[in-house]
Each structure stands twice: as structure tokens, then as C-alpha cells.
């Protein structure tokens, strides 16, 4: 069973979010990067577990990005991916990424593609659906559980206020949310082995971009907190009703 896991690189969760060039570019100055938590904690780990339980096939981590992403890709190898591919290009839009991954998946006999439910920077949640449409396969999104038996997957998908449990035949695309797996911390052996695992760099396929971010803004913060004495909860209720009009 060949499992492809999309991993992306995102600013670390405490990174300062600022923009430059008149608010048209993300200011990367001093920003540390991590693997997108949904990709790392859930998608990658569940793919590794499934491969381990079948005992055959491989887990391939794929990233679209510049050479500086290799450090994040090596981490995926240290956690347990067997090999990795980096498409050597800036990932400027969801469709760009989806088309690169789809092109690789078509040529490489992939049974399932895993990815996180969204990235924590652009929060687009679009790559999975695009990829599924490009591959013309089912897309099981927001999965919190997946079991595979032979050629069939049973997946629990989180929906607003509940879950849908569905069955589909491979190949398919799965996006991962909390619950799909338990985070794995790479151990020393994994880190050593990761250095020897293949990381293939391939050129991108051409894509016509249809969206562009033309400007960024930081939302206005709160102007100051109004403190209410704990003895006076009637006053808090009054403020919430009359001033905030929230109740």
C-alpha cells in the first residue's frame, strides 16, 4: 500500500505575524517554522500506522517548497516516512500545490493521499478537495478515524455537531483532524535514519494562478478591558445586555 502524505511548513504558533511592503507581503523576519500541526500530528502518523499494520508498501512525504523546507521534510522522515519528495517551487496557492501533488500521485501508483484538514497560516482547507477532483477520487475530509481492510476504508468524518461514518474504495484522499492519531516525537534512531532516507527533488508542473493576495491587515485589537467587581455580577449582566448587546 503506497501512502502519500502532504506536509507543509507554517510559521511556529507563537510567531509574530507582521507584514511589510505596505502590507502586501508577510514579514518573515525572525519567524521560526514548523511542520503544519495537522499534517504532522495526525495525517503523517496515521499513514505510518496504517503502513505498519499492513506490513507492506511505503509512506512518502511530499512538500512543495524551496530547499529551506528540507529541514521540515527530514522531520517527517524522522517520524517514520520512508521517503520524501520536494517539488522545487514556491507554494503560492492551493491549486498550485494540488496540481503538483496530483501529478506526482498519478505517476506513482498511490493508494491514499493524506493531508491535514488545513494549514494554520492560510487556513484554506482547499488542497484536499482540489486534489481529489484532479484525481477523480472520493474525498473524506475532517477524518478523526480511519480503518482500512483490503481495498476498503471506513472513515469517521467530523461534521458540524456530529460525525458521518462512511465507506469508500481506494484510491482516495483523506484530510486529518484531531483524533486521527496520537502525535509522535521523533527519537534518536529515527533522526539518524532520516539522514539516509531518500529525499528526491523534482521540478514543478506549470500552473496558471487564478488568485492572489493583494494586501494583508492586522485586525484592530481590543481597546481595553472593563473590569467588573466580582461582588457585582448584576453589573456585568447589565453591560452585556445594554452596552455589548450580546445577551
Amino acid at each position: 500500500m503506497n501512502l502519500l502524505v502532504c506536509i507543509s511548513k507554517t510559521p511556529e504558533t507563537t510567531a509574530k505575524i507582521a507584514f511589510k511592503e505596505n502590507g502586501t507581503q508577510f514579514d518573515t523576519d525572525g519567524v521560526q517554522y514548523i511542520m503544519n500541526p495537522y499534517d504532522e500530528w495526525y495525517a503523517l502518523v496515521r499513514a505510518i500506522e496504517l503502513k505498519e499494520s499492513v506490513g507492506a508498501g511505503k509512506v512518502i512525504a511530499i512538500n512543495v517548497g524551496p530547499p529551506s523546507n528540507d529541514i521540515v521534510i527530514r522531520k517527517a522522515l524522522a517520524i517514520g516516512a520512508d521517503e520524501a519528495v520536494r517539488v522545487d517551487a514556491e507554494a503560492n496557492s492551493a491549486s498550485f500545490v494540488a496540481k503538483q501533488v496530483a501529478s506526482y500521485a498519478k505517476d506513482n501508483n498511490i493508494d491514499m493521499v493524506f493531508l491535514g484538514k488545513e494549514t494554520i497560516d492560510y487556513n484554506g482547507s482547499l488542497v484536499g478537495g482540489m486534489l481529489s477532483e484532479l484525481l477523480d477520487v472520493p474525498y473524506l475530509s475532517y477524518a478523526s478515524n480511519i480503518e482500512v481492510s483490503g481495498n476498503e476504508a471506513t472513515v469517521t468524518c467530523e461534521i458540524e455537531g456530529g460525525v458521518e461514518i462512511v465507506k469508500a474504495t481506494l484510491p482516495l484522499v483523506v484530510s486529518a483532524t484531531k483524533g486521527l492519531a496520537e502525535q509522535r516525537i521523533p527519537n534518536m534512531r529515527g533522526i539518524m535514519m532520516a539522514k539516509r532516507k531518500p529525499l528526491n527533488v523534482i521540478p514543478p508542473v506549470g500552473v496558471e494562478e487564478k488568485e492572489a493576495i493583494v494586501s494583508y491587515q492586522i485586525p484592530e485589537g481590543k481597546t481595553g478591558v472593563k473590569l467588573v467587581d466580582l461582588e457585582n455580577m448584576d453589573e456585568l449582566v447589565r453591560l452585556l445586555h445594554e452596552e455589548a448587546k450580546a445577551i
Binding site: A98, S125, G129, S132, E133, S141, K210, E211
Partner: peptide, 19 residues
């Protein structure tokens, strides 16, 4: 929502749309 996001990606490809 979870369904809308899945559809948005699929439709963008299907319709060759901007999303």
C-alpha cells in the same frame, strides 16, 4: 463548513474557477 470547504476545492478544479 466541513462540507462547503471540501466542495470549494473540488468545484474550483471542476469549473476551472478562482476560489
Amino acid at each position: 463548513n466541513s462540507k462547503g470547504k471540501a466542495l470549494a476545492g473540488r468545484l474550483a478544479i471542476n469549473l476551472d474557477a478562482a476560489v
